[in-house]
Simulated assay, not measured.
Amino acid sequence: MKVCVIGGGHGSYAAAAELSENNHHVSWWRRDGAAFSPLVERGLLDVDDHRGHRQVRVDGGDGIQVFTALGDAVSNAEVIVAPVPAFAHESLARELAPHLRDGQVVYLPPGSFGSVVFARAVRDAGNHADVAFAETGTLPYLARKHGDTRVVVSGYATRLPTGVFPARHTDRALGLLAEVYPAVERSEDALSGALMNAGPIIHPPLILMNAGPLEHFPSWDIHNEGTQESIRRVTSALDAERIAVREALGYSAPHFPLADHYTADGDEWMYGNAAHEKLTDSGDWREDIDLTTHRYMTEDVEIGLALLSSVGRWASVPTPVADGLLALAGAVTGRAASAGSRTFESLGMAHLDRPSLQRFLHEGFHQ
């Protein structure tokens, strides 16, 4: 299949490598094209995972083809995979919107309800292409870049609950995506997919309750020393709020409770059983986290957690833990964390009643 990968982060490097190794025709674009220079000049991407070390060609022949123009990169793609942070969605959506065509599927892993942002950008660009936007609850990879030409993948997703916007395209979109990511599983719609996002549940308690060591030590592993029982209890309470919101909206199980991420004997989570140990054993998450600029704050708190809180308000479901974490985050950063760009209010959806929301999620924007 012809697949375009967008972005230059950890997930994009892992996606380009895996999809090329799986015999897909991969085009690759990132906004800072000059940053690709070391990789293009070398012509090889080093990959390390549970299978060992190997190299993937980046040469435009049988290997990954790097593009400098976004329109050229996506022109022939059937599926466009964009593992970029949610705070980059608005600008990327505007750039991408004029280039999309009928039948394409844009995959946002994870999305934080970015499907609506991309679909709105297509409408605002005057592009009448009928495009499906899909999003899931996590990156397909536990991955970290090591320099410009190497990526280490500690784990691969085994289950990817995925919702589609508009939901009328679900069968077609998931059919294509399953050829690229066989782990995809059907969620009811894009909001259901957004409410599977694990980042806004895992990361806000970990960074805010580890604020002292994060600021004191040159590096700190929030997933190893930073994951203590008291913090896990907060995470569990926050996840219970997420599940309560999903249930109030009529979404069915499995809800992928985060507790399964931490156990070896529960239901299989998105990265399989004992995924937490794979992550901590790698050592790649011992890092320097700036509480005001790191994506755990700018993406998972100010976008993802703010979205959850806003949907709770809309559905009249109390979310006191989410609201409290947002208040703490605002005190830390000096920004209004609860008023992010992805709330129902900021998306212009807070006025919708339940039937109107369901129609919107199924039909999308009217051209």
Rank of each mutant, 00 (worst) to 15 (best):
V151L: 08
G199C: 10
D221V: 05
I243D: 01
E241Q: 10
G212L: 14
E247I: 13
H203V: 08
R246G: 04
I207E: 01
V131H: 00
L208Q: 08
V234L: 15
E188Q: 15
E241V: 09
L174K: 04
Y141G: 02
V245Q: 03
E185I: 06
N224E: 14
L249H: 05
S236W: 12
W220T: 02
E135C: 04
L206M: 14
W220D: 01
H169E: 00
F217C: 06
M209I: 13
P161I: 06
E185R: 15
A178G: 15
Y181I: 01
R232Q: 12
P161V: 06
P182F: 13
L238E: 04
L176R: 07
T170W: 01
A248Y: 11
G193A: 06
N224F: 13
L206A: 12
R144A: 10
K145V: 11
V164D: 00
P166H: 00
L177K: 02
L176M: 13
V131R: 00
T235I: 15
S192D: 15
S187H: 08
L206R: 13
R150Y: 13
R186T: 12
P182T: 12
A178C: 11
P218Q: 10
A190W: 06
A167K: 01
S187N: 13
I201M: 06
L191M: 14
L249W: 06
L174Q: 06
G193N: 03
E215Y: 09
T227S: 09
R232S: 05
D130I: 02
M196S: 01
P140V: 04
E185M: 14
A248R: 15
D171C: 01
E135G: 07
K145A: 11
D189P: 05
G163N: 03
N210W: 09
R242V: 09
I222R: 04
S187R: 15
A183F: 11
D189Q: 08
V164G: 01
E247K: 14
L206G: 05
A194R: 02
T170S: 15
P182V: 12
H223W: 12
E225I: 12
T170G: 01
A167V: 05
G212P: 00
F165Q: 04
G212T: 14
L238M: 12
G175S: 13
I222D: 01
L139D: 02
H203Y: 12
R150E: 10
S154F: 05
T149Y: 07
L206E: 06
L160N: 02
I207Q: 03
E185T: 13
T162P: 03
G147Y: 14
R186Q: 14
T170R: 08
V234S: 08
D171T: 10
L191F: 12
T227Q: 01
Q228K: 14
P161H: 10
T235P: 02
R186G: 03
G193F: 05
L139F: 13
I207G: 04
K145N: 11
V180R: 00
L249R: 03
S219K: 14
E247M: 12
A237G: 09
S219I: 07
V151K: 07
D221Q: 09
I207F: 12
L177G: 02
N197F: 04
G199K: 02
E135H: 09
